[in-house]
């Protein structure tokens, strides 16, 4: 970190930013423990709002491409976040979509199952704790005696960082595991990088690192986690637990399935997969042990009551679906808000 003086010339510049996300990614950075000191040796940190004061206008004044590395976590939900994404893209040589929200939308993007209107209605009207008799809603501009106040525009659709600006590398995970963060930093520092636009990570799935024994799969019934105490040695999916390890990129070390909890897919799809949820659904549908359409319907409906939550929990924004369909004008274009 800068000691207040001019940065040492050989040190690179590092920025970390936090958009629509929970803050877990920030903690994960600290999870690299004392190696953070090595990061400080290598970089001057020019922006890290979670940890130190910083001003947007200072970044705006920096020459383009003067930040060597920007780790950007969080999805793009508001116009302010989009502005910061564009600003940091302009100022950074290497922009990394850090963590699941930036990489594929993650939990914030589940809001894409609703519209802005529905979200506002819930947040500013329907919740029991809301007391808002005048029906006040956030406005982009509000006139007050002192002048005009501005709030960011709340988008209808949550986007990934890559859907807003060009991203050089993706580091998946909710949050990324500290070891993987360190691997990525080493790769960046030593220049041993894959082609721009790719994910820094494994090309296989969680099963590859899972210690459980896997057999041929025939599933008669899907079970929710509270319905079963799984056998400790056998593949969870074979026991009927919807484990997303089959489709999820390795990198976590199979932490959840190792301790008997199914993989929920936080490391995102494997290399080359276009739509994580579609992969999971075709895979599971393929191993349901029945030829009877009615029975298959029952197995799916009883065992998987929330397909979006089960299969698009982390990747809705980046999937082929992206969001629940908005009202259309009939010409394929989204209707203007009334």
């Amino acid at each position: 970190m800068s000691d207040g003086g001019a940065p040492t010339p050989e040190k690179g510049k590092l920025a970390l930013y936090w958009a629509a996300s929970c803050g877990g990614c920030e903690i994960a950075v600290l999870g690299i423990d004392d190696k953070v000191l090595k990061v400080a040796e290598a970089f001057d940190i020019v922006l890290w709002p979670c940890v130190m004061d910083g001003k947007v206008r200072d970044i705006e004044k920096m020459p383009d491409k003067s930040i060597d590395l920007c780790l950007f976590n969080g999805a793009i939900r508001t116009s302010e976040q989009e502005y910061m994404a564009q600003l940091l893209r302009r100022k950074s040589k290497v922009l990394v979509a850090f963590g699941s929200c930036a990489a594929e939308g993650c939990i914030p993007a589940l809001a894409n199952m609703n519209t802005r209107e529905e979200i506002f209605q819930t947040a500013y009207h329907d919740t029991p704790s809301t007391d808002n008799p005048d029906g006040v809603r956030p406005q982009i501009e509000t006139e007050v005696p002192e002048g005009t106040l501005h709030l960011p525009l709340f988008y209808d659709t949550v986007k990934t960082l890559g859907q807003s600006v060009e991203v050089d590398y993706y580091l998946p995970g909710c949050p990324p595991e500290p070891d993987r963060i360190w691997d990525a930093l080493v790769a960046i520092l030593t220049g041993q990088l894959p082609a721009p636009g790719s994910v820094i990570g494994a090309t296989t799935t969680v099963c590859d690192t899972c210690p459980r024994t896997r057999n041929e799969k025939k599933i008669k019934e899907f079970k929710r986690t509270w319905e079963i105490i799984p056998d400790p040695d056998t593949c969870l999916l074979e026991q009927g637990v919807v484990c997303c390890g089959i489709a999820t990129r390795a990198g976590c070390g199979a932490l959840c399935p190792t301790v008997g909890s199914p993989c929920i897919g936080c490391y995102g799809p494997n290399e080359g997969v276009v739509d994580f949820g579609a992969r999971m659904m075709t895979a599971l549908a393929s191993v349901i042990d029945s030829q009877d359409p009615d029975e298959i319907d029952r197995i799916i409906q009883e065992g998987i009551p929330d397909p979006i939550g089960s299969f698009y929990r982390f990747g809705l924004a980046n999937s082929l679906l992206r969001r629940k369909a908005l009202a259309h004008n009939g010409d394929g274009r989204v209707a203007e808000p009334a």
């Binding site: 296989t204 099963c207 590859d208 057999n215 041929e216 799969k217 089959i246 494997n270 290399e271 080359g272």
Partner: peptide
């Protein structure tokens, strides 16, 4: 091979029994 994690989803699906599981390589 590099992408296959040996999850064995495909093992029972092939109508022509063309898929086998290599235990040694998983």
């Amino acid at each position: 091979e590099a992408r296959c994690s040996g999850c064995r989803i495909c093992n029972t699906l092939c109508p022509f029994n063309a898929i086998e599981y290599l235990e040694d390589k998983a």
